[in-house]
Each structure stands twice: as structure tokens, then as C-alpha cells.
Write a protein that binds this DNA or RNA. Sequence first.
DNA 1: ATTACTAGTAGACGAGTAA
DNA 2: TTTACTCGTCTACTAGTAA
Lengths: 231, 231
Amino acid sequence: MDEKFSFALRKIALLGGINNYIAISSRELGDALEMSQQSASKRILELLDEKYLVRDLGARRQRIKITEKGVEELKKEYNEYRRIFELTDRVTLRGKIVTGMGQGGYYITQKPYMDQFQGKLEFRPYEGTLNVKVAKEDRGKLEVIRSMPGHVMDGFEKDGRTFGKVTAYKARIHNIDCAIVVPERSHYDDVLELVCKYHLRRTLSINDGDDVDVVVDLSPLSPEDKISCVS
Amino acid sequence: MDEKFSFALRKIALLGGINNYIAISSRELGDALEMSQQSASKRILELLDEKYLVRDLGARRQRIKITEKGVEELKKEYNEYRRIFELTDRVTLRGKIVTGMGQGGYYITQKPYMDQFQGKLEFRPYEGTLNVKVAKEDRGKLEVIRSMPGHVMDGFEKDGRTFGKVTAYKARIHNIDCAIVVPERSHYDDVLELVCKYHLRRTLSINDGDDVDVVVDLSPLSPEDKISCVS
DNA sequence: ATTACTAGTAGACGAGTAA
DNA sequence: TTTACTCGTCTACTAGTAA
């Protein structure tokens, strides 16, 4: 996002424009942004054009609200600051073991993905994933992880079905090397999918409801690795 | 801070320029900022001029590092995002009761302050403050609070000594109304000073080392109140 | 290679003003 | 009152190039 948009959008967010329409004249916004009424009016038009804002142009006062797209952009910036001030190159996520819907496990254990894992993560996963429901207080970290570069597994076609790109991040659970996998079109929920060389439930003797810490490695990838973010 | 500075500084921080000198050419920085080598070079000169950066201009490659002032500016922006995404109008700080150095208590219980409290917070504090050492994980919230508008008590002179402005924020401890007070030139530590109508230690039967939750009210002040931030 | 000057240009801004 | 047009100015950019 252009920095001039980010600046204006942030101020609008601080004025409460994320969840509600706020009544604000272009003069008032101009004052907040330290610019003229004319420029603030233009900025609003540009933000509307970029679909970062929606407007209800009433007779007397306009009312504006930040769109979902606008909120996403602000979150990206927020996550950059979190990377600067909160995170080192290791992030610990606390969660509980759960039984997945089977869906993700089937998806990720397709042979073409598995072959790529072997090349990029130096292990061939055991066929099956371990699902960890991330604790509420750590869910913000998930977004940060998704915005970081990871190991990208290319998508493919099989039986007429499309399997999209998947990003893997090296991790450790109870000191065992593993990886968390994030499909490109992630359903954006709070359940991690872990793959590992071993059958994790058996190896670690863990069951549904057990608390686990997953340490995700976000240190910079070697330059020859393809770099990509999920979001 | 000018938005163009904030944008560049943030990228430099993401490249690791907060704790270390990083070797980066103006071309590389230009690529990161999506601008020309010439503009990036100029931007670096401007940031140096504003004392947001320091530089070690070696023979081959320059090495730059963000100054304390630069980090402060970035933190301000980070705190804006925290206000957008984390905080509602109530912030809970967890901490432990400690015995203050007496210094703050003497300072804040001066009569001219007390008189202003009565007008602005609708209670006259008991003469003495309760000190709460904020838990490590909540210290970031302190900065956010200090950046929010509060009830400003004007400073005064007495016996040749200057007493500066003090900002008060309404709060509650164990469901009792109180306020936290922040001197203008705060020693910026992690100890809250609470004032209350009652003698809090006696009323709540609490002692040094006890854990307490302090709920700070950050909801917008009524317009007739003077508005000011500590930082 | 670098960094950073000068010069020319495009775009952002505010004043004036219409609707 | 509003919002937002046109237009002149001035800033911020890049290209070329020196050191």
C-alpha cells in the first residue's frame, strides 16, 4: 500500500472508522492529517477509488468506514511493527491437540507435496498431520507467521482437482523437528497443521486436549530458497 | 514524524537496523523502498539530519543504525496500531504491590495537585499513593497509556521548587474507583502510582507482593477537558 | 563499486471557487 | 455550511554524472 494511503487510513482507524461509519468532514480529516481541506477531500476520493474506504455521502456530513481490504492493509503494517518489536526469529505458539476434520491431512499428504518436503525440509513427513488449536492469546502471532517468507511447495493438478501452493515453516514440538504447513488459500482459522518425520501422537504420547508448545523458526531462509508469503 | 521518514525507518528496522549497524547500499535501500538509488541516498541524508539514523560511511559500503530517537518514533507508530487492534477503551494491567521510594507520593500529594484532582476526577485523594509494579508482559501497555489523552493537572511553583504537569487516568482496582498519575517528566519506569479516595492498602487489605489488576479507563474524555499526552 | 551532486520533470499540494 | 473542481506553485522524484 502506498504510504500516503497508510497514513490516512491509520488516522481514520484511530478515529474509530474500523467498525463503524464515522461522520467526519474533509476539513476535520485535513486537520488530523495536517493538510488542507482540499487535499483531505482528494485523499478520501483516492481511498474510495482503491476500495480502502466506503462512504455514505449524506446531505450535511459524509460518513466513512474502512473496508475489509483497508483493515487487511492496516494489519499488514501492524504485523511489520510486531516483527520489529515483539518477535525474534523464534515464535512460540501455545495450543491444544485436536483431531482435525481430516480435510487438511488428506490435502497435505498428497505425494507431490511430500516429494517437495523431502527436498526443502530435509525430511519426508509421516503420512498424516497433527492438528494444534492455537490458544486465543497467541492467535495474533499466526498472522505474523503467515506474513513471513517460508518454504513454498508448488501446487499441482490431480484427477481434475487443483491443489494450490502450500507454505511450510520449520518448527519444533517437544524438541522434535517438524514443520507447520499453511495452504495458500488458508481457511484462516486457528488450527495449525504439523507434519513430522515421525508419528507425533505416538512418539510424544500425546492425545486430544493436551497442551503443547510449538516453536516456529522464522529466521531468514537461505537465499536460494524461493521466498513467498501467504498473505 | 513525517510519513516518508516513518516508512523508510520501518523498512530499515525490518532489515535489522535497530540493534546493529547494517551494511546496505543506497541502491539496495532504494529497491526495498521502491525508489531510485538517488532518492534513497537523499532519504538517508535526511534521516541522518533528523538524527533518526547514524552512519558509518566506510570505504566500500555504508553501515547505518537507527538511533534511540528513531526507535522512539517507531514505537509511537507501533502504539497507534496497538490502539487500533488491541485495545478497547479499557486496559488491564497486572502487577504487584510494592513500597515506593516515597518520592512520588510526596510529589503527587501536594495540595495544588490535590485541589485539581477534586475538580477533574470528582474525588479528593487520600494523602498517599499506592505503588504497583507492572508485570513484564504488560509494560508495553504502559507506553500506550502514556500516549493517550488524560486529565491534565497543571504544574506550579512552591518554595522555589518547580512541580510539573501531571496527567491522571481514571482507573479501578478491585472495583474501587481510583486514578493512575503520571508526572510529565516521568522517570519512565514500570511502577504505577495510584491515588484513591480511600487508603487502598487498608481498604483492600493488601500488602507488598500481592497481585492486583488495575483497569485503566481510556475512553474519550469529555470535550471540555483539556487534552494532552505525556509523550 | 560506491555516494551524492545538479538539472529537469511529474505529481502533490493549497488557493480560489462552483455547486 | 458542505464536497470537490481547476489551476498555479512548489516539492519530491529520477536521470545523468562527478568524485
